[in-house]
Design a binder for these strands. Structure first.
Lengths: 292, 292
DNA sequence: CGGGGGCGATACCCGGCGGGTATCGGTCTA
DNA sequence: TAGACCGATACCCGCCGGGTATCGCCCCCG
């Protein structure tokens, strides 16, 4: 099975329409039909049910869609990691823009003070993007925030755990309170919670605005369009017009440094070791040694 | 990047010799040279250092070898799982030949008594093979034995934990003892421990014989060529000429049922649920629902 | 010191396959 | 019932992956 065939199949399986899939792939429809038919012949399985007026996935089709996506992701990661291994040494670290600023500064300072530092490029991301970049091999390590991100399939090291605060428009009745509970915030009909992107980039349904980054977030709070519940460290990047009140019963947020478990780069090992030394933490969740 | 290119590169990287790699791939050497050169051009990286008289991997080459192997494994798994999803329903369960026999029987009986059973094919494996078959998508589930196998990247459910016994040639001085310690066994110069295959199928160095399956193992013990430390349940498949003595300080063996975390097949979910119900166990390590 | 052998790269050719356009057959809709 | 929509088929072309022959280089050996 060639990756080209997989790309074609995934496109059709996602569009459920040969014409659209072909357009998305930048080819004509007939070669696409032929390629899928050939793939089905080679696998000895029907992948798509064509009942004129549309296309549906068979059981095998569902399986191949899922497996094919992971294969294509692995291929993209392989390309990116190989390409970057050929570049002059240097680490790329992904972090959510406008979050964990002090922690990030402390980590980078401590790493730069090591005996053998390499240049560290910072890749500031929108919500949830770090995890994707890490899995795609576009970055060497990422600062993730549990429980929003997941470390599944990654090695990670816990750096810091903190409580949560509510961001409210200044002057809002609740803004004067010494502390809040989630239920009180949920009861505000005209001040909905924001909607954050899911793992695949789509947004859940609901009344709140769709959020991509922190500046957008604090602006919408200041404008009185929503409230938000963020980690305490969000205090450091406050803007006028936004009030902050601790939330007692929101689950705490843990900032972790995560990296590819298969990585064997010495600079990455240095960064991880620095993180362990600076932030103590609950012991490493994986090991890095030697190499490239 | 096409899987063909990856297969070619992995072959060259493993052989470190274009001619041999080409022979292994069943093509001539020049197209192989050209394909690798083209891959390097597309990635913008040198993968191999050719200094006449041989080939060596560069840093990027090492990375691509590692990544490429995982990609090719993922592709093989995708093909196998898709193909099997197209077959009439049925589960394939991998188990070590001659191990966990009673447990296996109990599991299969209980599953067959469910309201919605499908036929279960049993795939009896040599040591360590189950894990590979599972990861390759050739089977739906496997009985693994911790700490010999690893459940990394798999979902699993603990079924049973048991102590260890030593297998000794009947008539051996230690065979009459009520119990033993590992140190006593290690001190037997003419009765070495067997060597079991590693994850990649190779064997560690050492004095003992290389072991592939349990019949071979008990035969070698009976012939006085080695001793072995096995789970208690090995008693059930004893042969004449072999004595069994409990070992007090060997780490216990846990039998787990493992499966692909991404699997969504209803029959597999039924098998897992059966395992949970029959063996109680420490709660599931993953969830299975719905589908194909 | 010169020739031969081993190895990867290059040159060149051919056939198949991936891509294109044109068109068909079937079905739903206006 | 005509037309639109959609996937399959027919057919053609150019490129690329595969082949053979040969080169260039280096090492080794006589």
């Amino acid at each position: 099975m060639e990756t080209r065939e997989l790309r074609y199949f995934v496109a059709v399986a996602e569009e459920l329409h040969f014409g659209r899939a072909a357009r998305r792939l930048g080819i004509a429809q007939p070669p696409l039909s032929r390629a899928i038919a050939q793939l089905e012949r080679r696998l000895g399985t029907v992948l798509l049910e064509r009942d004129s007026r549309g296309v549906a996935l068979t059981g095998s089709g569902h399986v191949l869609l899922r497996e094919g996506r992971t294969v294509l992701a692995a291929v993209a990661a392989a390309e990116a990691r190989t390409r970057r291994a050929g570049q002059p040494p240097g680490l790329v670290l992904a972090a959510k823009a406008g979050a964990s600023t002090e922690l990030l500064a402390a980590l980078l300072d401590a790493y730069a003070a090591r005996p053998d530092p390499v240049p560290v490029d910072l890749r500031l991301c929108r919500f949830g993007e770090q995890s994707r970049l890490l899995r795609e091999g576009a970055v060497d390590a990422a600062l993730l925030h549990l429980p929003f991100d997941t470390t599944e399939g990654l090695d990670s090291e816990e750096l810091h755990t903190e409580g949560r605060v509510a961001l409210l428009p200044a002057g809002h009745p609740l803004a004067a309170r010494p502390a809040l509970r989630l239920a009180e915030l949920a009861a505000l009909p005209h001040l909905p919670a924001p909607r954050f992107p899911r793992r695949d980039g789509s947004y859940p349904d609901g009344p709140g605005p769709e959020i991509r980054d922190t500046t957008q977030l604090s602006q919408l709070v200041a404008l009185g369009r929503m409230h938000a519940v963020l980690p305490e460290s969000a205090r450091s990047q406050l803007r006028p017009g936004v009030a902050v009140v601790p939330v007692l019963d929101a689950p705490p947020v843990t900032t972790v440094l995560a990296w590819d478990p298969a990585a064997r780069s010495r600079p990455l090992a240095g960064l991880v070791r620095t993180a362990v030394e600076v932030f103590g933490g609950g012991g490493p969740n994986g090991v890095v040694v030697d190499g490239s």
